[in-house]
């Protein structure tokens, strides 16, 4: 296996990934699902906030900012 599964917050800005697994629970999980984050969803990391967190991601045509707490529960594969 050459591809590595990493948590989303470690994805460098400007690169793309596909969601592999959602490890968030309860309310956070439901919220992420509502945004359309399911297995296979394409996500682009756009930019970090001036203070380093949160990060803006392009998800299904919308720009969504996630704190590292949320993003670290989304496991992705770089593409």
């Amino acid at each position: 296996m050459t591809e590595k599964i990493i948590p989303l917050h470690l994805l460098p800005t400007g690169s793309f990934c596909k969601v592999k697994e959602l490890r968030a629970l309860d309310n956070m999980r439901r919220r992420l699902l509502d945004l359309g984050l399911i297995n296979g969803t394409l996500v682009e990391s756009l930019r970090r906030s001036p203070s380093g967190d949160p990060t803006a991601y392009q998800i299904r045509g919308a720009v969504i900012a996630l704190r590292s707490e949320e993003a670290s529960n989304i496991f992705v594969e770089r593409v």
Partner: peptide
Amino acid sequence: LPSSFTLELPP
């Protein structure tokens, strides 16, 4: 602790 947070940045 802070709760989950998602913020949409509209066009």
